[in-house]
Design a protein around this nucleic acid. Sequence first.
RNA 1: GGAGGGGUGGCAGAGCGGACGAAUGCGACGGUCUUGAAAACCGUUGAGGUGCAAGCCUCCGCGGGUUCGAAUCCCGCCCCCUCCGCCA
Length: 424
Amino acid sequence: MLDIRRLRTDLDAVRASLATKNVDPSEVDAAVDLDERVRSLSSQRDELRAQIKTLSAEVGQARKAGDTAAAEAAQEKSKAIGEQEAKLAAETNALETELRDRMLRIPNTPDPAALVGKSEHDNQVIRSEPLPDYAQHQRVPHWETGAALGILDLERGAKVSGSMFAVFRGMGATLSRALCQLAIDRNADAYEEIRPPTMVRTDTLVATGQLPKFVDDAYHVERDDLWPIPTAEVPLTSLYREEVVAEADLPMRLMAYSPCYRREAGAAGKDTRGLLRVHEFDKVEILALVTADQAEKMHQEILDRAIGTLAALGLPYRVLEICTGDLGQSHARQFDVEIYAPGVDRWLEASSVSWFTDYQARRANIRYRSDKGPAFVHTLNGSALAVPRVLAAILEQYRNEDGSVTVPDALRPYTRGVELITRR
RNA sequence: GGAGGGGUGGCAGAGCGGACGAAUGCGACGGUCUUGAAAACCGUUGAGGUGCAAGCCUCCGCGGGUUCGAAUCCCGCCCCCUCCGCCA
């Protein structure tokens, strides 16, 4: 959520900033208009409340003094004002609810340093290495190799749960688990490992920005009104919801392995083959709560860590700065790390490293005690490792001429000595 | 799922219809004393909204109700604890 005061005092700047995110300025104007009406109404309401309080005190005094007539007179007067107050209060409440809903739907403003652009086509590669020469045997899509080796069973995944659900088996399952283990171990030096719940309340999903605007992207267990998480970012951020943390605890670094559930509504038909886009996948997420001053440095730190794990796996990567037009709702600045998958000849988004300024913290009401009183924290996060796409890239990059797949060195501590995956 | 108890400031905890935004303790901050520190003593110390300000308003889990007036009474919901049931 944006600070409404920015809309009051700096409206043009906010409109201009959001325009780079392709936000219709009328969304902002509607909020400003509502805000003005809310303030006008609530001050009238407060005026009446003050009168009621004064009169009520008089009733008490009069009663004590035994002046029944005066007490009753004050009561009558107060009652009459109370009726007006009730009307105004109801009106104010309705408008406040509407304003909050609007504010929850207005995206975060991009950081001034963010790359300006209209759409994903304007994203810029800010770091890359030359690709090696790939042999013909590496130009095989992972779903073919996975099926041939018996480690990826998409047909049975579809039978059990529908399309875009994968079954890993044998070394496929082992590899999937090994990747998570590697990502956790690489970050355990600084990040506290959390095993969060993977179904959350509505408020939790509102805090990070998935609701109310993106309901269609989330699964919902209606009977219990719980939502399977799309990323561990969701429960990790809400861990400190409605809390005031000590400044000394910042930066606070957290990480979690979790399954992630995404409906992928609107992505029908896109990247549906193999592991490129699935409804359920495993991911290790790293996240930080920081002060505004610490944010930029932390953004770099998380990016470095995301890159570090992919590099350790020997996967060619590049870093993209996401332009304003492609930035997510809660995002102020974002870098994506992509890995190259030779079999499908594509760059795959493997990690998204994001800075939300205080946008999520306002929604979640996460503050820290600073010298100048409580202040909102900044939140940042990034995928340390998301399994399916990394696994896909490995199955392609590490494929040998005979169709076997070599286990990357970094994973060998986790594969019980298996260095080569062959057909069973 | 059933029965009972409970949710109050950073924490602990009192208040159970009338000046309560809330006793007290701890913590934190400032001061006195001290070469310095500790102890002791004195003082300050919740958050949010609105307003140039004085001030005014809101918040005692959440929502509704009763009342001139609610932290206090009533109803619904959520959460926590204890016991029972069920269960990995």
